[in-house]
Simulated scan of single mutants.
Amino acid sequence: MDISQLSFVWYRGLQAISAADWQALAGAHPMLDYHFLRAFELSAAVDHQTGWTPYHLAVFEGAQLVAAAPCYLKTHSYGEYVFDWSWAEAYEQAGGQYYPKLISAIPFSPVTGPRLLIHPDYTAPQALAIAMVSQMRALCQSHGFSGLHVLFPDASSANACAETEGLRRTGVQFRWENLSYVDWEAFLAVLSRDKRKKIRQERNKVQQQGVQCRVMTGHTVSPEALALFYQCYCNTYHRHGSSPYLPLTFFEQVVREMPDQFILFIASQDGVDVAASVCVLGQDTLYGRYWGSLRDISCLHFELCYYQPQQFCIGHGIRYFEGGAQGVHKLARGFVPYTTCSYHWLTHPDFHQSVARFLDREAGTMQAYVDELEERSPYKVTPASD
């Protein structure tokens, strides 16, 4: 069908879209699941008060939803993990107003995935994706938003962004791959000797401090266990003098609607629960998301945020574990670097060109950083991936 015959509609929340229609577009990515994104809205983690106003794009062919994009109007840059604070400062020093801006992203989640969600039966997906970006840019122009930012798109969404003059920004994260290891020792065997020794020392230290760990899914998580996790989660923020992004009701909603995808690791010391971490499970990837501790226990962060999830992946045949943003220390624990990207369009032409020049300079520095990281592989021989 001709793109011009489609209807592009903006919604201030997912309640206006049926869960079944959204799921037909989102596929299996757990953090694009209707219930996951809706949990942000129902818990008021995203709304006008928090500076994350839902502004989702939906595309209809007649009455059928054929495409959508999770979008938000932002009045700040917190919780994005693509840092543009310096752009905002420069723009406002020049007399402009950087906020609000429009972003397409998963709130508070530096996780790569589709951003332009298109029904698998639609016959011209690339043309539709390009039209969606054009609609987003037109909205920014007509409403005076400073720009559009598509954060952590997968390859398909990124291609559409590149074809619409988006400015590409490259980032780096760290991912662990389960190369069909039969057990934990099989994984350790492929590491260099010093890395293998370090991991064993760290895990032994945790055990010597009387710590034991257990894992639950959303089906077995009790209200008490979830409350313990949330206390730990909040404590992480409070220690750094900040407030948590997410309320307890967000996690309660996810546990209720997505129990298979909610994975909780709890650590106890001498029989007392003292720390917890939460991961979100996809088809072939476990995503490390939130953690916290009530006691200072040496090496517990590594155990609960890396080693326990890695063992979970080995035991359940999960191929990848993504441990979250940043963290060069992950290299020593078997993770390897991989590049992420974001795309940006600034409404003011001169400012767009200034950011383009900045990103050109940054790209060279980033490539040198990636090259350096790849030379520091923790493996005896860099593992081959099919």
Rank of each mutant, 00 (worst) to 15 (best):
2 D>F: 08
5 Q>E: 12
6 L>D: 04
9 V>G: 00
14 L>W: 00
18 S>H: 05
19 A>K: 09
20 A>W: 01
24 A>L: 04
25 L>R: 02
32 L>V: 01
32 L>K: 01
33 D>K: 03
33 D>C: 02
48 H>L: 11
49 Q>W: 13
51 G>P: 01
54 P>H: 05
55 Y>I: 00
57 L>Q: 07
59 V>L: 05
60 F>R: 11
62 G>I: 07
63 A>H: 10
66 V>A: 09
68 A>N: 01
78 Y>A: 09
80 E>M: 00
81 Y>D: 05
85 W>N: 13
87 W>P: 06
89 E>S: 13
98 Y>M: 02
99 Y>E: 00
99 Y>P: 00
101 K>C: 00
101 K>W: 01
101 K>Q: 01
102 L>C: 00
111 V>T: 10
119 H>W: 09
124 A>N: 15
126 Q>S: 15
130 I>D: 13
131 A>D: 05
131 A>N: 04
134 S>N: 14
136 M>D: 08
137 R>G: 03
138 A>E: 14
139 L>A: 14
143 H>E: 09
147 G>V: 06
152 F>R: 11
153 P>D: 13
156 S>E: 15
160 A>Y: 11
161 C>R: 12
161 C>M: 14
162 A>G: 12
162 A>S: 14
165 E>Y: 11
166 G>W: 09
168 R>W: 08
169 R>K: 07
172 V>W: 03
178 N>I: 05
182 V>G: 09
183 D>P: 00
184 W>R: 00
189 A>D: 10
193 R>W: 10
201 Q>E: 13
210 G>I: 07
212 Q>T: 15
214 R>I: 09
218 G>S: 08
218 G>R: 07
223 P>S: 02
226 L>N: 09
227 A>E: 14
231 Q>F: 14
238 H>Q: 12
239 R>W: 10
240 H>R: 11
242 S>A: 13
243 S>W: 10
244 P>T: 08
246 L>A: 05
246 L>T: 03
250 F>T: 02
253 Q>D: 10
257 E>N: 06
257 E>Q: 10
259 P>S: 05
260 D>T: 09
261 Q>E: 09
262 F>T: 05
273 D>R: 02
275 A>F: 10
277 S>P: 11
279 C>D: 14
279 C>Q: 11
279 C>Y: 10
287 Y>C: 05
287 Y>K: 07
291 W>F: 08
291 W>N: 08
298 S>N: 14
298 S>H: 14
301 H>Q: 15
305 C>A: 13
311 Q>D: 12
311 Q>Y: 04
316 H>A: 09
325 A>W: 07
327 G>V: 11
327 G>L: 11
329 H>F: 15
331 L>I: 09
334 G>P: 03
335 F>C: 10
337 P>C: 01
337 P>M: 03
338 Y>A: 02
342 S>Q: 08
343 Y>P: 00
344 H>R: 02
346 L>W: 07
348 H>F: 06
353 Q>R: 15
356 A>W: 01
360 D>V: 11
360 D>P: 02
361 R>D: 13
363 A>I: 06
369 Y>V: 01
370 V>R: 10
377 S>F: 06
380 K>S: 15
381 V>E: 15
381 V>T: 15
386 D>W: 15
